[in-house]
C-alpha cells in the first residue's frame, strides 16, 4: 500500500507538468492580443512593444513558460491586466470561497445521492425506485442556473427567507447563521447534479451487489440486515467515491454560472470576469489552480479506492 501510495504521488508530477503546459498554451493559441485590451487603439507601436517587453510577452514561448511556472509555483501569478494588481491574493480568496461552496454542495449532493440511490437499489422496481430515479433524472437534466433563479424567486422574493446574492456581511467570513444563510441557496443549487449522478451510480451498485452470491452467503450465515448493509456499503464505496471526487473537482470550476447567478465571489466569478475582460494572466492562473485541484482530488480518490478495495492493490 505504501509503495503504491508513493508511486501514485510520483505520477502526479508529470501529470501536473502537462496540465500546466496546456493551461499556458491555451492562452497563447486563443485569438486576440491581450495588449490590445489595455491600450487605446491609437497607441504607437513602440509603446506597445515596451508594454509587451514589460510583461515578458516578447520572449520565446519556452522561456515564458519556464518563468511563468517557476513563479506560479511560488505563489506569484503575476499581475492582473485589467486590475493592475497581483493576482495571488484575489485568487486565493476566490479559491477559498469556491472550495467552501463546492464542498457544501458536493457533500449535500453526496448525502442525498447515497440515500436516494441506496433506497432505489434496495427496493428495485418498486415505487420507491421510480420516485428516486425520477428525482435523479430531474437533477441531472435541469439546467442548474435556471433552478438557481427559480429558488431565488421562491425563497428570496416570495418567501423572503434566504438571501439571494453575495457572501453576507462585509468583513471576514464567520461560521454563524448570518453568513451561512448566504450559502444555502447556491449550495442546494450546486448539489443537484452530483445528487442525480450519485443516485444513479449508487442505485446501480446497490442492486448489483444485492444480487451477488456473497450476499446470499451472508444471509446464509444468519447476519442481520444491518450486518449485510455494512458489506453492501464497503463494496459500493470505491466506485461511489470515485464519482464523487470527480464531481467535487468539476463543481470547483464548473460552478461559473451558479456563482454568477448568486454573485458568489469565487473562482467562477473570477473566470467569468477574466474571460470578458480578456485578462489572460488571471485566466491562466485560475485555470491552473483548478486543474491542480482536479489532479489532487484524483490522487485522493485513487488512494481512497485502493485503501477500500484490496483487489486494486496488485499493481
Amino acid at each position: 500500500m505504501l509503495e503504491y501510495t508513493l508511486k501514485r504521488i510520483a505520477y502526479t508530477i508529470p501529470i501536473g507538468l502537462a496540465v500546466s503546459l496546456v493551461c499556458f498554451m491555451l492562452v497563447h493559441i486563443s485569438p486576440g492580443d491581450p495588449i490590445d485590451s489595455i491600450v487605446p487603439p491609437d497607441t504607437p507601436t513602440e509603446v506597445i512593444e515596451q508594454i509587451r517587453a514589460e510583461y515578458g510577452l516578447d520572449r520565446p514561448l519556452p522561456v515564458q513558460y519556464g518563468l511563468w511556472l517557476s513563479r506560479a509555483l511560488q505563489g506569484d501569478f503575476g499581475e492582473s491586466i485589467s486590475k493592475g494588481r497581483p493576482i495571488g491574493p484575489d485568487l486565493w480568496v476566490a479559491t477559498k470561497n469556491s472550495l467552501m461552496l463546492a464542498a457544501f454542495g458536493a457533500t449535500l449532493g453526496f448525502v442525498i445521492g447515497c440515500v436516494l440511490g441506496g433506497a432505489a437499489g434496495a427496493f428495485r422496481d418498486s415505487w420507491i425506485d421510480k420516485l428516486c430515479l425520477g428525482i435523479a433524472l430531474f437533477g441531472v437534466s435541469v439546467p442548474h442556473y435556471w433552478l438557481g433563479m427559480v429558488l431565488v424567486i421562491i425563497f428570496s422574493v416570495q418567501l423572503n427567507l434566504l438571501p439571494s446574492m453575495g457572501m453576507g456581511p462585509t468583513g471576514p467570513w464567520a461560521w454563524d447563521w448570518d453568513h451561512l444563510r448566504f450559502l444555502v441557496l447556491p449550495a442546494v443549487t450546486l448539489s443537484l447534479i452530483p445528487a442525480g449522478l450519485v443516485t444513479r451510480t449508487v442505485r446501480g451498485l446497490v442492486s448489483d451487489i444485492m444480487g451477488q452470491d456473497y450476499i446470499t452467503t451472508l444471509r446464509g450465515k444468519g447476519l442481520r440486515t444491518s450486518g449485510i448493509v455494512l458489506h453492501v456499503i464497503k463494496n459500493a464505496a470505491p466506485t461511489t467515491l470515485a464519482v464523487m471526487g470527480l464531481q467535487l473537482a468539476s463543481l470547483l470550476g464548473g460552478s461559473i454560472l451558479v456563482e454568477a447567478v448568486f454573485a458568489w465571489p469565487g473562482t467562477g466569478m473570477l473566470l467569468n470576469n477574466a474571460i470578458f475582460q480578456r485578462d489572460l494572466p488571471v485566466l491562466q492562473a485560475t485555470t491552473l489552480v483548478l486543474a491542480f485541484f482536479f489532479v489532487f482530488l484524483n490522487l485522493i480518490v485513487d488512494l481512497a479506492q485502493t485503501a477500500l478495495d484490496p483487489r486494486m492493490r496488485r499493481t
Binding site: Q212, Y214, T217, G220, K221, G222, K234, N235, P310
Partner: peptide, 25 residues
Amino acid sequence: QLSQYRGPVVSMIFQEPLSALDPVF
C-alpha cells in the same frame, strides 16, 4: 428466527467460493 437458525443449526458451502466470499473483506 431464520437469521438465528442459519449458522448455528444449518449452514451451507457454496459452489463457487470466489463469488460466494465478499471480495473486500
